[in-house]
Nucleic acid binder design. Sequence first.
RNA 1: GGAAAGGUGGCAGAGUGGUCGAAUGCGCCGGACUCGAAAUUCGGUAUAGCGGUCUCCGCUAUCGUGGGUUCAAAUCCCACCCUUUCCGCCA
Length: 429
Amino acid sequence: MLDIQALRNDLDQVAARLQARGYALDIAAFNRLEQERKTAQTQTQDLQAKRNASSKQIGIAKSKGEDVSAILAEVAGLGEQLKANETRLADVQAELQSLLLNVPNLPHSSVPVGKSEADNVEVRKVGTPRSFDFEIKDHTDVGTPLGLDFDTGAKLSGARFTLMRGQIARLHRALAQYMLDVQTEQHGYTECYTPYIVNAETLLGTGQLPKFEADLFAAKKGGQEGESEALYLIPTSEVTLTNTVRDEIVAAEALPIKLTAHTPCFRSEAGSYGRDTKGMIRQHQFDKVEMVQIVHPESSYDALEQMVGHAENILKALELPYRVVLLCTGDMGFGAAKTYDLEVWLPAQDTYREISSISNCEAFQARRLQARFRNAQGKPELLHTLNGSGLAVGRTLVAVLENYQQADGSVTIPTVLQPYMGGLLAICA
RNA sequence: GGAAAGGUGGCAGAGUGGUCGAAUGCGCCGGACUCGAAAUUCGGUAUAGCGGUCUCCGCUAUCGUGGGUUCAAAUCCCACCCUUUCCGCCA
């Protein structure tokens, strides 16, 4: 959520910055609502002040045993007037709030202006794609004989669900364990285990609601009918980790807060029909090791660069070629002020594919969350929040299968994963 | 699932219709005392919004959430959420 003060004071400039990311702010609607809010609020507050003063007088008079009927006559009818005004004010403020909740974050000045993926800027390329002296198979062809089972996944749950068996399942687990160990032992994140099902308020805090409900899975208690409050499956543990500071005022000394968790993520992938339908690139359920940092506003851009490094270290250790991309204004997510993507080399697709996305949300989430710290003046101030994948486990598995495939159909195990695989050097059918 | 208790400021905790935004303690900030610190002592210390003559003043809202009663609600009524304890069920 943007600071409403920024919109009041500098509406045209805010609108221009939003335009850069392809969002057309309804300036007229905002101005009209603000005007209505102002009159409704002053009128309401005047009436409230009048009522409070009279009530106080009544209290004083009664304690002295005086007659209060004169004052009572004065406030007759005030109640109804007040109620009408209060209702109007509440309506206008709710409208303003919902307008505000649907406005994306402002891009940082260092973010390149662009319309789509095509305008993203490559920052660096690391590692050299391996050359193959046999015909490259994609991860589905490599994985299927080793235990990757899309048919059973579809039978159990539908399209975009996968079952893994045997060594593939173990490799998947090894990746997650390894990532979690690196993030906790080498990069200083605190390991968390979080709920996978959350309430609407939590999703409002990180920005998935109210705008993106269609991208989520909702859950209800078995046998429950009707309009009970919906619960949702988390689309990423960014949601739970970041919400740990919702409605908190944390001590400045506690910063930065660095959290990580390995969780499944559930996404309905609405609007992506027809994209990446083959294989496990785009799933309704996938595992991810998430990094979240909650930091002092002054250090959030340093933290962003660090977190990119924390994600890169996993790819380096796995010896997977990748590139770092700075997203343009048009390709960034709703809450991000600046985002780097890490894209891993997939030889069968002959291209780099997103495997991690690391964003600084500045105070955008913190404002929704009311997540604050006490600044040097002792005043509560909004924190900055950052999140990033470190990494997406399913896509890393895809990358390992493709990059480490051998002519005989086996897949060698990256050195750092071997201890997690009981010393296995390769898996084969 | 059943029963009970409870949700008040940064924290602990009093307050059961009226000068209550809320006692007291802790914490924090400033002063005094001290060579300095501790102890002691004095004063200050919520958040958000609106308005103004805008380093300050005034007003409004906020005691889990939402509704209701009333001239007036932390306090009374209703619904919901959450927490704790006990019982039941359960990995």
